[in-house]
């Protein structure tokens, strides 16, 4: 049993070391796999921000993951094919990853603002359903959009360009993703310790109290929802670059469920919980996936056991001050 700060440090150290070990033992696939863990962790901490700390169970976060992914795919494919994006605009897309991230974050924030504005007027099961409905609308829109591959998805031939780094090198790309994870962990830690963070946590427990001290909970939740959407959107952008491919599956409800499972597995309202959740999820996928196509059966069993005996997630099993 250890303290949370120590466990967090160990998690980061392990993630930092793995690509070097993979390089040493000539296992580049392991680097790719760890990159996937890091990207899913980013998506998870994005969701955890509103789910764990704000009590908002969004079952539509695939919307942001997918939009971030499609923004990246669309901009890159136009740049690679030298095709104009809009007939009225002389713009051929872009393969500059910094620019693509910026656009992904802006668009995902805007979509999160729209979805949040309508969804946050509801609560509980209605909030779950409305966020799911928005994501499903986008999923079916992506399927019916032949210009960008429709059901077959959209391929980009090479990863987008980062100044002075060859992103096609798995280790380089890994550390780009890892840096983003560190950035978001730092930002969220600062926010959660701020006045805004305290009010967000209060909204989760008692909105009536928040109103009675002169704060509108809707505004707090909407801002948080936009933050969360932007973080998850950036994860989607990185995911497209990792796979050099984006398809409607990243917008599907299964993707929303996957992100939520990471959060629940690792530990809701633990900043590093989704990282541990993603590690565990990918290990299960890789080990049990080789044994059976229906490996999710075992995942389901684990979630049942967790909900019954370790509600605070895998992290709580290691921690001294467990909330479970």
């Amino acid at each position: 049993m250890i303290k949370e700060e120590k466990l967090n440090l160990i998690i980061l150290l392990v993630l930092f070391v793995i690509p070097f070990l993979a390089y040493l033992f000539n296992e580049p696939y392991l680097t790719t796999l760890t990159t996937k863990i890091v990207i899913l962790s980013i998506a998870g901490i994005g969701l955890n921000f509103i789910l764990g700390y704000g009590g908002l169970v969004s079952f539509g976060h695939a919307a942001f993951f997918g939009i971030g992914g499609y923004v990246t795919g669309i901009l890159a494919s136009h740049a690679q094919n030298s095709e104009q994006m809009f007939f009225f605009l002389q713009f051929d897309g872009s393969n500059q990853i910094l620019f693509i991230w910026l656009i992904s974050i802006i668009i995902c924030s805007f979509i999160a603002l729209l979805i949040g504005y309508f969804s946050l007027r509801t609560s509980g099961v209605y909030f779950i359903m409305i966020t799911l409905a928005f994501a499903q609308m986008l999923y079916y829109f992506s399927i019916s959009w032949p210009a960008y591959g429709g059901e077959d998805g959209l391929s980009i031939y090479v990863r987008n360009v980062f100044p002075f780094f060859n992103t096609m090198n798995p280790i380089n790309f890994y550390f780009i993703c890892f840096t983003w994870l560190l950035i978001f962990l730092t930002i969220l830690k600062i926010i959660l310790n701020s006045s805004f963070g305290l009010v967000l946590k209060a909204c989760k427990e008692n909105e009536e109290r928040v109103k009675s001290i002169g704060i509108n909970p809707f505004n707090i939740k909407l801002i948080s929802f936009v933050f969360s959407g932007a973080i998850t959107g950036l994860a989607g952008s990185l995911y497209t670059d990792l796979n050099r491919f984006v398809s409607p599956s990243v917008l599907s409800w299964q993707m929303s469920g996957e992100i939520m499972v990471l959060v629940i597995l690792g530990g809701v309202a633990r900043l590093y919980g989704p990282i541990l959740g993603a590690v565990f999820y990918i290990i299960l996928e890789q080990t049990l996936g080789g044994v059976s196509e229906n490996w999710q059966f075992w995942l389901g069993l684990i979630i049942i056991l967790e909900v019954l005996y370790a509600r605070a997630g895998i992290m709580s099993l290691f921690l001294k001050d467990s909330k479970s």
Binding site: I191, S195, F196, A202, I213, G214, I215, I220
Partner: peptide
């Protein structure tokens, strides 16, 4: 707010009074 400490409950009220809930 039951999950907050006593002093956090007061800090929350002060944040509302001082209108600095957008301090991130």
């Amino acid at each position: 707010i039951n999950n907050f400490s006593v002093v956090q409950n007061i800090k929350l009220a002060l944040i509302g009074k001082n209108k600095n809930y957008l301090d991130f």
